[in-house]
Nucleic acid binder design. Structure first.
Lengths: 215, 215
DNA sequence: AAAGATAAATTAAATATGTTAAATAAAATT
DNA sequence: AATTTTATTTAACATATTTAATTTATCTTT
């Protein structure tokens, strides 16, 4: 159940702004509940009707704040990406040893996913076209895109410092990212398989990859 | 629409066997239609109702041959794995250059997935626990498990021949497999992202990985 | 060949999903 | 206080998986 929260300076504002603020806050509250539901119940059990019950409004109300389920999913993705991006930037702020920064970034990527499996599922394993067409993606300002670019910068610095082989920056970035994604995706999605210890797998993968692309 | 096909030696068999054979054949026919529907319409559009319409039976009839949708999905997975395994074994039949065999196996893995995106989706991106619990998986005879073991053998031979670093065989196998999976999964699932050429990515990944784990 | 038993298939229905259109309640404006 | 605008809900549609009850077909036995 949501609490209506606009109280502080209601009397100071015009009604129009009050409306807008209310609408924004409500949207945020729905988003918070949705995220919580995701974390607790998991990706596959999440439903609009379930969310409606949780926030104690009718399902249709959600559609006044989000175009459809995809729209809500994207919003959650963006939140996750924002959080992820913040930590990634912090890692890049240590430019003394670029290769070590890259190593840490990849390991953090894995750790983040292991710690937030449901967010990761929303982000990477929702059905395609959620973020629009190919052309749109890189043009539209989004945390998802920015995360990629941030990771790309880290790789760039390694090449620039002569620590990694000089090659197409996007190819290398994508190879490193997708390989890392693979470990995360399959171990969190296919829990039935008798995997080796995930941390061992993570370190082995990252060190192997970096060794493979080192000069 | 299915054709009832038991004709050849119906009169030679007892009725009980005839029934059994009919049931088996019918199950197989449903499976074939289901696979076809998958390939043509894609994973997300597949439904029991659609399948029922295609085979010109009521939806409930399918439930007489498959416990539920998961059961049918597993059956398709096994078919895919069987096909995959057959080709993998053929690659391993060239033991002269084990590292080249491994390289080819990985590239084949990727190629197979790119050529059969929908089968791949069923196999790797259906929801979890489809194959039972952790313990069951390796005990139960399944094509999925056998494929893993076959790939493991190839890796084993590379280590045995001194071509790869001596390390835990399962860790190495899983790292190579999951990294490869990552490239496949994310490029077939997130088509919206402006990926580099997939073949370039594939070769870069495989060569980089092998270089990273070479002695 | 007819009657009874077994198997196969269907119809009907229960439950759950996302979503839209029409109706109602609440709030703001005049 | 009346009217217009905004917020919310109720009812309904379309589709999904799946179970129970019922009908149809097939086999077995006399």
């Amino acid at each position: 159940m949501l609490n209506k929260i606009n109280t502080v300076k209601d009397h100071l504002m015009g009604a129009k702004e009050k409306r807008g603020r209310y609408k924004e806050d409500f949207r945020r509250e729905i988003l918070n509940s949705a995220r919580e539901l995701f974390i607790n119940e998991g990706y596959e059990k999440f439903s609009m009707r379930g969310l409606a019950k949780k926030i104690d409004y009718s399902p249709t109300t959600i559609y006044l704040y989000f175009k459809d389920k995809d729209d809500l999913l994207i919003a959650i993705c963006e939140e996750v990406a924002e959080q992820f991006l913040a930590n990634l930037s912090r890692i890049r702020a240590h430019p003394s040893k670029p290769l070590e920064a890259l190593r840490q970034a990849m390991l953090y990527f894995i750790e983040f996913a292991f710690d937030n499996p449901n967010q990761y599922k929303v982000f990477f394993l929702t059905r395609p076209n959620v973020y629009g067409t190919q052309e749109e993606f890189m043009e539209r300002e989004s945390m998802a895109r920015n995360s990629y670019l941030e990771f790309r910068k880290i790789v760039q610095e390694c090449i620039g410092a002569g620590k990694l082989r000089r090659m197409d920056i996007d190819v290398l970035t994508q190879v490193l990212a997708t390989a890392t994604h693979g470990l995360i995706a399959i171990t969190t999605y296919h829990k039935n398989f008798p995997w080796a210890d995930r941390k061992v797998l993570a370190i082995t993968l990252v060190d192997g990859l970096l060794r493979g692309f080192q000069k």
